[in-house]
Simulated scan of single mutants.
Amino acid sequence: MDPDTLFVIGLGLGVLSIPAVVSAISKGERPRIATITLMIAGAMVVWAMSNKPGGYAIEAIPAVVAKVLRSFT
Rank of each mutant, 00 (worst) to 15 (best):
A34E: 03
R30I: 14
A66R: 15
R32L: 14
A34T: 00
V46T: 12
V68R: 09
E29F: 06
M39Y: 11
A48I: 04
L13Y: 11
T73N: 15
I36T: 10
K52M: 12
A63F: 11
I58T: 14
T35H: 02
V65Q: 06
E29V: 03
A60M: 07
V8L: 05
L6K: 12
S71R: 10
M44P: 05
P19D: 12
L13I: 11
A57P: 02
V21I: 15
A20V: 06
A20Y: 12
N51V: 04
V65C: 09
I25Y: 09
G12P: 03
S26L: 09
T5D: 10
A48S: 12
V21W: 08
L38H: 11
I33W: 14
M39E: 07
I61L: 02
R70F: 11
I40G: 01
E29P: 03
G55N: 06
P62K: 05
L69R: 08
L6F: 12
T5K: 11
G54N: 06
I40D: 01
A60K: 00
A34L: 00
W47S: 07
G28R: 01
G12K: 08
A66Q: 13
E59S: 14
V45G: 03
V46M: 12
K52P: 01
V46Y: 10
A66F: 07
M44R: 01
P31N: 01
A60C: 06
I36H: 05
R30T: 13
A60T: 13
G14E: 05
